Lab assay of single mutants.
Amino acid sequence: KELVLVLYDYQEKSPREVTVKKGDILTLLNSTNKDAWKVEVDDRQGFIPAAYLKKL
């Protein structure tokens, strides 16, 4: 599985998104959309803007 590093805090703005903190390391589920990547956070799945993430 692929991991990503969170570069900036992000507060979810819709039910399809998830809230993350800078420095979190998350499982990347889908990065086919260049604008928003799907990740898993504490058994929740949701989207975060790709600009907030860096592949490890």
Rank of each mutant, 00 (worst) to 15 (best):
K55P: 09
N30P: 04
D24T: 09
E2G: 11
D43C: 13
V18Q: 02
P49S: 04
K38T: 09
K54G: 05
R44N: 05
S14Y: 10
K38C: 15
K38L: 15
Y10F: 07
T27I: 15
D42R: 12
L29H: 03
I48H: 02
K34W: 09
A36S: 14
A50L: 04
R44L: 06
K34V: 12
I25Y: 04
A36W: 15
G23I: 02
V20M: 02
D43E: 11
K13Y: 05
L5R: 06
K54Y: 10
S14C: 10
K34D: 13
D43I: 06
A36F: 15
K38N: 06
V4K: 01
N30D: 15
K13S: 10
S14M: 07
D9Y: 05
I48E: 02
Q45G: 05
Y8W: 12
V20K: 00
A50I: 08
S31A: 12
D9V: 03
I25P: 00
A51F: 13
A51N: 13
K34Q: 12
V20E: 02
L26E: 00
I48L: 12
K21A: 07
L29T: 04
L5S: 03
E2P: 11
E12M: 15
N30E: 15
E2A: 11
L56G: 01
A51I: 13
L56R: 00
K13Q: 13
S14R: 07
P15K: 09
K38D: 04
D35G: 10
S31I: 05
K38I: 15
E12H: 09
L28M: 03
L56I: 14
V20L: 04
L28S: 01
E2M: 13
T27N: 08
L3W: 14
T27G: 07
V41L: 12
Q45M: 10
N33V: 06
N33W: 09
V39C: 04
D42L: 11
L26A: 07
A51G: 13
E17V: 05
F47V: 07
D24P: 00
N30I: 08
D43R: 09
Q45A: 11
I25F: 04
T32A: 13
K55C: 11
K54R: 11
A51R: 14
D43N: 14
T27L: 14
V18N: 03
Q11P: 05
I25S: 00
V6S: 01
L29C: 05
L26M: 04
L26H: 05
S14L: 09
G23A: 01
Y8D: 11
Q45R: 09
N30V: 08
D24L: 08
P15E: 12
L56Y: 07
L5G: 00
W37Y: 06
L28A: 02
L3H: 09
L26S: 02
L26P: 01
V4M: 00
T19V: 04
I48W: 02
L29G: 01
P15H: 10
A50V: 11
E12D: 06
K13R: 13
D42W: 08
S14P: 07
W37P: 00
L3C: 14
E40R: 10
D42C: 11
E17D: 07
A36R: 14
L53A: 05
T19M: 05
I48M: 11
G46F: 15
P49T: 04
P49K: 05
Q11T: 14
E2K: 10
F47W: 15
N33I: 06
G46H: 12
Y10C: 03
K38V: 15
Y52A: 13
L28Q: 01
W37N: 02
T32F: 10
K34F: 09
D35F: 14
V20T: 03
L5Q: 07
L7M: 09
G46E: 09
P15R: 09
V41N: 08
Y10L: 01
D9M: 03
F47S: 05
I25Q: 03
D42P: 06
L53S: 00
L53R: 01
K1E: 09
V39H: 01
N33P: 06
W37R: 00
K55S: 07
L53F: 01
P49R: 03
K38R: 11
E2V: 13
Y52F: 13
R16F: 14
D9A: 05
K54F: 09
R44A: 05
V20H: 02
I25E: 01
D43L: 09
P49W: 06
G23F: 03
E17R: 06
L29N: 02
V18F: 14
G46C: 13
N30R: 05
W37S: 01
A36N: 12
V41T: 13
A51S: 14
K13L: 10
V39E: 00
D35V: 10
A36H: 14
W37I: 02
L7Q: 03
K22R: 13
F47Y: 15
Y8P: 01
K55M: 10
D35A: 10
V6Y: 00
V39S: 00
D35T: 11
D24F: 06
Y8H: 13
F47N: 04
N33T: 08
L28R: 00
F47T: 08
V4E: 01
T32H: 12
D24W: 14
V20A: 13
P15Y: 07
L7H: 01
S31N: 07
V18S: 02
L26G: 05
K55W: 07
D35E: 13
D24H: 06
N30C: 13
A51E: 14
A50Y: 03
E40H: 06
D42N: 14
G23R: 02
Q45C: 11
Q11Y: 14
G46W: 12
D24Q: 15
L29A: 03
V20S: 03
V41H: 09
G46D: 03
T32Y: 10
R44H: 07
K34H: 11
E17S: 07
K1P: 13
K13P: 06
K21W: 07
N33D: 13
P49L: 06
K55R: 12
A50G: 08
F47Q: 04
K21Y: 09
A50W: 03
E2T: 12
V41D: 05
V6Q: 00
P15V: 09
S31H: 09
K21N: 07
K55D: 05
